[in-house]
Simulated scan of single mutants.
Amino acid sequence: MSISPGLLSFLSDLKANNSREWFAANKALYDVEKGNFDKLIDSLILSYSEFENMVGVERKHCSYRIYRDVRFSKNKEPYKTWFSASFSEGGRRSGLMDYYLHIEPGGKSFLGGGMYSPTPEQMAKYRQEVDYNGAALRKIVESPQFVSTFGTAEGEMLQKVPKGFDPTSEDAPYLRRKQLFYWKHYTDNELQSADFISQLMKDSVVMKPFLDFLNATFFDKEPF
């Protein structure tokens, strides 16, 4: 299974015509492509269940609405110009760090995961864990396979190591983190290739130890 050319075409047209009038006129096409994406989500739930606990997780627990909440946003465009879903035990509202799949034409599609909007409590737990056990995190995210797949860390950083932590530590770059997430982008051709799901799963398996580290830190959750 792969991403259909029609889905990418619809999203490209939506980006060029992001209005309620255009969307209403093309609602039937949206329904078709959303149906195709829903089938993909169903397939991915089964695939992720091979190495994550997905018991009870359904499509509705993974998918995101295309309608934007514009109440508090300067961007008043009514629709997202991508399809997306996230996968974890308990679904996207579980609070667990999950595998986030973002489908957007023009090379903007990606698999991502990590600490994007941590709470103050999570940041405190994270820094404590890095201070005690930073070598475990470095072993994961600095491994050749992880780096070749996801590159270097994304997200905001403090200018200095927070007070109470050693600024000369090997873990200083991780202690300075306000966010810590990784992503791998896919070209439109890669999305449409017959082995896309297989590749996505291989990449997800590479990401799994990083997510396991964060979930154990935040929730004392043991790997599946």
Results as ranks from 00 to 15, higher is better:
residue 8 L to I: 14
residue 15 K to W: 03
residue 18 N to V: 00
residue 19 S to R: 09
residue 20 R to P: 02
residue 20 R to Y: 11
residue 21 E to A: 10
residue 27 K to F: 06
residue 33 E to P: 05
residue 33 E to V: 07
residue 33 E to Y: 14
residue 42 D to I: 02
residue 42 D to V: 05
residue 46 L to G: 11
residue 48 Y to R: 06
residue 49 S to V: 07
residue 54 M to Q: 07
residue 54 M to N: 02
residue 55 V to E: 15
residue 58 E to R: 13
residue 58 E to D: 12
residue 58 E to L: 12
residue 65 R to M: 08
residue 66 I to N: 07
residue 74 K to P: 00
residue 75 N to K: 12
residue 75 N to P: 05
residue 75 N to Y: 09
residue 77 E to L: 15
residue 77 E to I: 03
residue 81 T to C: 12
residue 86 S to H: 06
residue 87 F to A: 00
residue 87 F to K: 00
residue 90 G to V: 14
residue 94 S to A: 13
residue 100 Y to R: 05
residue 101 L to Q: 02
residue 101 L to M: 13
residue 106 G to M: 09
residue 109 S to G: 14
residue 110 F to Q: 06
residue 119 T to C: 07
residue 120 P to Y: 13
residue 120 P to C: 13
residue 123 M to D: 07
residue 124 A to W: 09
residue 126 Y to R: 12
residue 127 R to L: 01
residue 129 E to W: 11
residue 130 V to L: 09
residue 131 D to I: 04
residue 137 L to E: 02
residue 139 K to V: 04
residue 146 F to K: 05
residue 147 V to E: 12
residue 149 T to S: 14
residue 153 A to W: 10
residue 154 E to W: 12
residue 155 G to L: 08
residue 160 K to Q: 15
residue 163 K to R: 06
residue 163 K to L: 05
residue 165 F to P: 02
residue 166 D to V: 12
residue 166 D to A: 14
residue 168 T to Q: 10
residue 168 T to Y: 13
residue 171 D to F: 15
residue 173 P to Y: 08
residue 174 Y to E: 08
residue 174 Y to C: 01
residue 175 L to H: 13
residue 177 R to M: 13
residue 177 R to S: 08
residue 180 L to R: 04
residue 188 D to T: 13
residue 195 D to F: 04
residue 197 I to G: 02
residue 198 S to F: 11
residue 200 L to D: 00
residue 201 M to G: 02
residue 212 D to T: 11
residue 213 F to Q: 02
residue 215 N to Y: 15
residue 215 N to T: 15
residue 217 T to F: 07
residue 221 K to R: 11
residue 224 F to H: 07
